[in-house]
């Protein structure tokens, strides 16, 4: 069975499956973090450069693998075959196959250098500045010009350049939204920058790309690109004071419990608590997800999260809370009211 000719089938087979796999990836289907579905200037530039290099790579691959296959197919030992000519080398050939890759590299290096400087992270004048601060294991976003602080879900206006300035509060993280921008590391004591602009509204997914401890896998994020007016409405809501619960409502009970609980040791709710360890909760009810964009922001997941965060997200720094029954219901209701 295992005769040599198998080899000649295996490689074309591999090539065909390669192409099939690529088609699956580039084609339809829903791939929220695919680099092939670029939706911003930055990611499109990277995608174009990648396709350029990939084309060269496929060309080289086909030529060299073909040469290899031809060599082993043509020069198989045959019984009684002649002794091979003891060729030691060939100067012209050596020069040729030194220069050929060098030449190809020029075609890769030139656009590479251009793109490096194009994507160095400086946005044009008038860009919206966003500060991203990495935490184990969630993202803090500040809009210094808008005086907003939020977490995990980044709202941006479509059509406007965004200047992202990144640093970390603890270990190294990496901010990556594949469909919008290449990743950059968040490092304590340093500031890194990227700049991008997307013209399409919609939701883009990303996640931390630098190993950052136990819950590295659970450090996800969403970017929500909105039309100007929708974005402006969001900004207004974020800048408004947090909702004050109605007298006698369950939300008000929740607020009082919140005030007395350990929550205020870590979280901010403007006017209620002012600690900076965990995410700012002033408008947490308006977010679609919680806990590093990991769970939908529902009553059930809030219950489970508050009761025992580390069981849902290994290593989570928020300890299990002793709130139970009606108290827990009230706090959850209060948080949900903070739109």
């Amino acid at each position: 069975m295992l005769r040599d000719p198998v080899y000649f089938d295996a490689v074309p087979l591999a090539l065909v499956s390669l192409v099939l796999l690529l088609l699956t990836a580039c084609g339809g289907g829903h791939y929220p973090q695919s680099v092939f579905h670029a939706e911003a200037d930055f990611s499109r530039e990277l995608d174009g450069l990648f396709r350029n290099i990939f084309a060269w790579a496929v060309g080289v691959f086909v030529v060299v693998e073909a040469l290899l296959l031809v060599a082993i197919a043509r020069f198989r030992a045959r019984p009684g075959g002649p002794e091979p000519k003891p060729v030691h080398g060939h100067t012209a050939l050596e020069i040729g196959w030194t220069l050929a890759p060098a030449l190809i590299l020029v075609f890769i290096a030139v656009p590479t250098m251009r793109t490096i400087f194009d994507t160095a992270g400086h946005a044009p004048e008038g860009a919206l500045r966003v500060e991203v601060i990495g935490h184990q294991w969630w993202w803090e976003y500040r809009y210094p010009t808008l005086d907003i602080s939020t977490a995990n879900e980044l709202h941006i206006p479509a059509g406007m350049p965004i200047q992202v300035e990144m640093t970390s509060a603890d270990v190294i993280h990496s901010f990556w939204i594949p469909r919008l921008a290449g990743k950059r590391d968040l490092i304590q004591g340093r500031t890194n920058r990227i700049a991008f602009r997307t013209d399409s509204t919609g939701e883009y997914w990303g996640q931390c790309a630098e190993f950052c401890g136990a819950s590295h896998a659970n450090m996800r994020l969403r970017v929500i690109a909105q039309s100007d007016s929708v974005f402006q409405r969001w900004v207004d809501r974020q800048r408004a004071a947090p909702v004050t619960p109605a007298k006698g409502s369950v939300e008000e009970t929740g607020q009082q419990i919140f005030r007395r609980s350990a929550c205020i040791g870590c979280h901010t709710i403007t006017g209620i608590a002012n600690a900076k360890v965990g995410p700012d909760l002033s408008h947490v009810g308006g977010r679609g997800t919680i806990a590093g964009a990991l769970f939908p922001n529902t009553t059930e997941s809030l219950h489970r999260w508050i009761s025992n965060a580390p069981s849902l997200k290994p290593g989570a720094l928020m300890p299990p809370q002793s709130l139970q029954g009606a108290d827990l219901d009230a706090v959850v209701a209060y948080l949900q009211s903070l739109k």
Binding site: L49, F50, V60, I72, T115, G182, K183
Partner: peptide, 29 residues
Amino acid sequence: VGFIAMFIIGGLSGVTHASAPTDLQQTDT
């Protein structure tokens, strides 16, 4: 021969992340 055939693939994907910008989509993935 398998070494040569496979190393070519590894080498070529290496060229795609020698290019710093494309590497921004590839590194740590």
